[in-house]
């Protein structure tokens, strides 16, 4: 896996991102603090079915819940207007997990938070968003482990 540095990120974001230098600076800051998040370019599918190559931060964030720390899998998509629009955020359950829908999570795993709803650069940023997620998920986890009693290995 290539080492992700600022110049590498700038190349990945090419000219598509209107505020590339701001975006790169934020990503660099966040991945230095949250080392289990990785910047990736991938195809994002919009509601109308169109797709676009967008940058995401994909990986896990450490969430403390009832005295244990869990690595909650998330994917934060950055639009090409970032940071002037909020990221589109999802939990990404593994096959061993199921989504717990609620005030902050829909059945697709999409994350809804006042922090995203009220997003305003430069007061809002990825680092602040992740801190909010960690607090909110620590009270109400977005995923739980699936029961293992019906494992096919026992069939």
């Amino acid at each position: 896996m290539a080492v992700v540095n600022e110049s590498g990120l700038k190349k990945m974001l090419s000219k598509q991102y209107k505020y590339r230098d701001l975006t790169v600076r934020e990503i660099t800051n966040v991945i230095s603090q949250y080392k289990d998040l990785k910047p990736l370019m991938d195809a994002y599918v919009f509601n109308d079915g169109s797709t676009r190559e967008l940058m995401s931060l994909t990986g896990t964030v450490p969430v403390s819940y009832r005295g244990n720390v869990y690595n909650i899998p998330v994917c934060l998509w950055l639009l090409d207007t970032y940071p002037y629009n909020p990221p589109i955020c999802f939990v990404k359950p593994t096959s061993a997990m199921m989504i717990k829908t609620g005030k902050h999570i829909d059945a697709n795993g999409k994350i809804y938070l006042p922090y995203l709803h009220e997003w305003k650069h430069p007061q809002s940023d990825l680092y602040g968003l992740i801190q909010v997620m960690i607090v909110v998920f620590g009270e109400e986890p977005p995923v739980f482990s699936r029961p293992t009693t019906q494992s096919p290995f026992q069939a």
Binding site: G59, P62, Y70, N71, P93
Partner: peptide, 14 residues
């Protein structure tokens, strides 16, 4: 090489 942390979740919600 850093593959990142293994995803984990709290025990089954009941």
């Amino acid at each position: 090489l850093n593959g990142g942390a293994v995803p984990s979740a709290p025990p089954t919600y009941t």
